[in-house]
């Protein structure tokens, strides 16, 4: 029987070594512009956040992530279903977008549209 126990031990060692805990991931839902190349009607702009490599710009005012969150919180207190347009600069980093989406999730905002700035 010892040979079989050896094999069973091998199996056990193999599964212990290869076992990996599933990583926890958050999946954030965003809306993208429609694929049509014809420029459509510009959406009614309620709230617009630009993400630039060094700062966030909310309705024309440069802010940090924390101040953006606070301002959006104040502006959307009555209506969390408001549309937020996030315009991301080409040189911005992905984690800046994710951080902003994360804060929006914290504020229960649902209508998040991601557009790309062509600069």
């Amino acid at each position: 029987m010892s040979a079989m126990i050896d094999i069973v031990f091998l199996l056990l060692v193999y599964f212990i070594l290869t076992f990996k805990i599933e990583p926890l991931e958050a999946h954030m839902t965003v809306n993208l512009p429609s694929p049509s190349t014809v420029p459509g009607q510009p959406p009614p702009v309620l709230l617009e956040v630009k993400i630039l490599p060094d700062r966030y710009v909310l309705n024309g005012v440069g802010l940090t992530l924390d101040t953006v969150e606070r301002t959006i919180d104040d502006l959307t207190r009555d209506d969390r279903s408001q549309t937020l347009i996030i315009k991301v600069g080409l040189n911005a980093k992905q984690h800046q977008l994710i951080s902003l989406l994360d804060r929006c999730e914290k504020l229960d905002l649902e209508n998040l549209n991601v557009l790309t700035l062509k600069y």
Binding site: L24, A26, M28, H95, I98, L101, E105
Partner: peptide
């Protein structure tokens, strides 16, 4: 290396 989220529920 994914960016970190703190407030979004795991999917």
């Amino acid at each position: 290396q994914l960016a970190k989220s703190h407030y979004t529920d795991p999917a």
